[in-house]
Amino acid sequence: MQHHRQSAIARAIRGVLLTLVGLFFLFPIFWVVLMSFQTNADILRTPPSLFFTPTLDNYVALITGQLDTAVGSLKISYMRNLWNSLVLSSASVALSLLLGIPAAYAFARYRFRLGENIAFTLLSFRFAPPLLVLLPLLLYFQDLGLYDTYIGLVWVYQLITLPLILWIVRGYFEDISPDIEHAYRVDGHGWLATFLKIAVPLARPGIAAAALLAFIFAWNNFVFALILGSSDVQPVTVGALAFITASGIQYGQIAAGLVLSMLPTLVLALLAQRYLVEGLSLGAVKG
């Protein structure tokens, strides 16, 4: 029975270690949520305490756009930032899906000259430091009238979202048995019907996963919007800068802003979970 007892002990140790790791990673989030219900005074108190009177002031300030500080009242546009984030991320992902899925299919199914090189070039956009391209881009954008527009930012965001979607969805297309598509062609359907009726539905879990990931990356982007737009189009990541005011840093509002900005991605992840875990082949090919 020694055999078994050992494995029970091992299980217990594993459980403890997992809990510790979980605490380590979840602690910042926990702390941010707590901070969002505290006043600046509570937050800055030393030593920090878990006991305080919760307040909704931070959220009220964000939603009404009226920030009252010791020095005076300040207008902020956090809700506008939130809306911008939503518009920019959704539009970027939508555009990337439109361009990326056919491209991913082409890379997965057809061998053509320079195919691998093109695919890799697209991926390499992810490696390039954004700051390198930002300055020339700023000048071009100002010339083209794209500075401070949604279209301009959505375009630049393709650098983030397109390679992600292309490479993830390509992998899913490659996992579909080509025989299923061949069977559809032999049935008498053209290549476009095969792509739309067979390939895309079967890659749906992959497309959903890629879209979600791309959305999160787009949502978290900071530097593109900081340089290429004003507060009219800037997302929450940049908007949070407004809380660093002349009279001090508004930690409470920053925390509340963070919580609000986390919510959409969280909801999206929960909704998409079904697609993310859904099996790929569904047992059509012998298993």
């Binding site: 048995s177 025989d179 299923i180 061949h182 069977a183 559809y184 062609r185 032999v186 049935d187 008498g188 359907h189 053209g190 290549w191 067979i198 539905p201 079967l202 082949s281 569904l282 047992g283 059509a284 090919v285 012998k286």
Partner: peptide, 29 residues
Amino acid sequence: PPDRRDIGMAFQNFALYPHMSAYANIASP
């Protein structure tokens, strides 16, 4: 192209369309 050949093929791994019913599979051609 394969869709203009008047040919039927049964694949070794069956290659059924997993997201369609058996009826829709058979009806496809």
